Simulated scan of single mutants.
Amino acid sequence: MLIGYARTSTLEQEAGLAAQVRDLEALGCEKVVAEQTSAVGVRPKLDDLISFARDGDTLVVTKLDRLARSVSHLWEIVGRLQTRGVALRIVAMGIDTATPTGKLMLNVLGSVAEFERDMMLERQREGIAKAKAEGRYKGRAPTARAKADVVRELAASGASMGDIAKRLGIGKGSVHRILKADNAATAAT
């Protein structure tokens, strides 16, 4: 059975979602599931679809980015599919893991993508090292520490760490670190 999966990130992309569904149905998918959610978020419909798939089925997506957000995420999904005996077809790339050539192509493309990511990270590290050596690299601006006085005021007024974090748009851990540093400084004196 061909099973189609369509996804867009936002509600504003409804036309794109409809086009994916139309294309998947035209390819002969007997079941098509569509969801509007971020690639980095939880995707319950994809999880349900993988659980639904049986040995011999093929999961079909129009483009790779509709399925996976990264190479490691792709391999995680492919692994889940393989344990169930389910193939993957990526239409835009002409890849079908039901064939030996399709498996090879997916592995080659995945390896190339991983290599490119590693090279990008290496170039980034080199750029940071050069900027540091030239005294131009300062790192990310400390957003939470800049709000330390406000954190202290809110904590003194009885606000919880969660409330403080939400009101200031910083992490709860940052609030905790600021208050913990204050407590350590007080204890030391």
Rank of each mutant, 00 (worst) to 15 (best):
T83N: 13
L106M: 03
A148S: 15
G135H: 08
V40E: 08
D65R: 13
G127M: 06
R177S: 06
D55F: 08
I164R: 06
L154S: 03
I95G: 01
P100T: 00
A98N: 08
L17P: 14
A133Q: 04
R117Y: 01
V86Q: 05
E30Q: 14
D57I: 04
V150C: 07
G85Q: 02
L59P: 02
L121V: 13
G41L: 03
L17T: 14
T10D: 15
R140Q: 04
L81M: 02
H73L: 12
L2V: 01
M93C: 00
L109Y: 01
R140W: 01
S9N: 12
A26G: 07
A6G: 11
T62L: 12
G169T: 07
R152L: 13
A188T: 04
A181H: 06
L88M: 09
A19S: 10
Q36T: 09
K45F: 05
V150F: 09
S174H: 12
A18N: 15
R152G: 00
L27M: 08
A159W: 15
N107C: 10
S72C: 06
Q20I: 06
I90E: 03
A113L: 05
A6H: 15
T10M: 14
G79V: 11
E153N: 09
R140K: 12
P142S: 08
A87Q: 00
E30P: 00
V60D: 02
G110M: 07
A159E: 13
A98Y: 06
E122T: 07
D47Y: 09
A92Q: 11
S157N: 12
V91A: 09
Q36M: 10
A68G: 06
V60T: 01
K63D: 02
A144M: 06
H73M: 11
A133M: 01
D163R: 15
E30C: 07
I77K: 04
R140G: 07
G94S: 03
E153D: 13
E76W: 15
D47V: 14
D182Y: 05
M161G: 10
F115K: 01
D57W: 10
H73N: 15
A131M: 13
I95W: 02
A18E: 14
R54T: 06
K180H: 10
A68E: 07
K45D: 11
I95H: 03
S157R: 15
K180D: 13
A87N: 02
M120H: 05
A6I: 09
I3K: 14
T189G: 12
R136T: 01
G135N: 10
T97G: 03
A19P: 09
E126M: 09
L49E: 00
A131F: 13
A92S: 14
G102T: 04
V71E: 10
R145K: 12
Y137K: 00
E153K: 14
V86D: 01
L24M: 11
G171Y: 12
E25C: 03
A144D: 08
P100K: 08
I128M: 00
L2Q: 12
L106A: 00
M93R: 05
G94V: 00
A165G: 06
R54F: 00
V61Y: 12
G79E: 06
A113T: 02
K130V: 04
K166I: 00
G56V: 04
G41M: 03
A87M: 00
V175F: 03
V33K: 09
I77P: 07
L17S: 09
A68V: 11
R54A: 04
Q36V: 12
R123K: 09
T189Y: 02
Q82G: 02
D55C: 04
I3G: 05
K132R: 13
V91L: 06
D149H: 09
T143F: 08
L88Y: 07
